[in-house]
Write a protein that binds this DNA or RNA. Structure first.
Length: 228
DNA sequence: GGCCAGGACACCA
DNA sequence: TGGTGTCATGGC
């Protein structure tokens, strides 16, 4: 198949996936959070961690009145680590959220809205330069806390697309992001929902041991395609 | 009791 | 440049 034809087919496939997941779940309103700052902190806390554990840590932060850049920077290591404990890797994550807060305070007076005013490419590089913020965390923050149209790639994205034969299982982060941003029309709301739908579908059907029965994407699995 | 979860980073060959 | 170990809690 020629490149343009292949590209067109891929775009149609990705649109079909979106339609199927959307029909199955309806609007996800992903990402949950009362403020942009809470969303950004959640993005750091969810690194390699089940979201239910992140929720517990966020509840702790709210109860301890630590869910603001100033409060996090003023808190003791012990207080911050205690609040973050349920999310796992709590010592690492305490350092990471603090570094993020320091950056936010130093350059934007603690305002995510001011940070979000920066152009996308520069802001992405800026976030990636922070220790503890890798590509997925940066893109979560950009898409859900800063309102930038970037396609977030996560383990579920890679798993789902590779199981459906669209990419290799070991495709790199940037390659997969470029592929998706090329073939899914750039739109903030659509990118937010698409990622949310992938997370929900992934959690329900596409874990390490996949459970394809009832999955909205199951009918598009190739015959003989190994499920995982 | 073992496996797994929406990553990121250091270290090594 | 790619593979491996480390970080840690909670649910099933």
């Amino acid at each position: 198949m020629s490149r343009p034809a292949h590209s067109k087919r891929l775009a149609a496939k990705l649109q079909d996936f979106y339609g199927r997941m959307s029909a199955h779940y309806g609007p996800t309103h992903w990402w949950p959070g009362d403020t942009d700052f809470e969303i950004a902190i959640g993005a750091i806390l969810t690194q390699n961690t089940a979201w239910t554990n992140v929720e517990k840590a966020i509840v702790n932060l709210k109860a301890a009145r630590l869910l603001s850049p100033k409060a996090m920077l003023a808190a003791s290591d012990a207080a911050l680590e205690t609040a973050l404990r349920p999310s796992g890797y709590f010592r690492q994550k305490a350092k990471r959220v603090r570094l993020f807060c320091e950056h936010l305070m130093t350059h934007y007076g603690g305002s995510l809205r001011r940070m979000a005013a920066r152009p996308l490419p520069e802001l992405r590089d800026e976030l990636l330069a922070l220790h503890g913020i890798g590509p997925e965390t940066a893109d979560d923050i950009l898409l859900y806390a800063c309102g930038k149209p970037v396609f977030v790639v996560d383990a579920y994205t890679r798993r789902i697309l590779s199981r459906h034969g669209l990419v290799e299982p070991n495709v790199g982060y940037e390659a997969l992001r470029a592929l998706l941003e090329t073939h899914v029309p750039s739109d903030l709301h659509a990118y937010r929902e698409y990622h949310g739908l992938i997370v929900w579908t992934g959690k329900d059907f596409c874990r390490t041991h996949p459970r394809c029965a009832g999955c909205p994407l199951a009918p598009t699995l190739r015959p003989g395609q190994p499920p995982g």
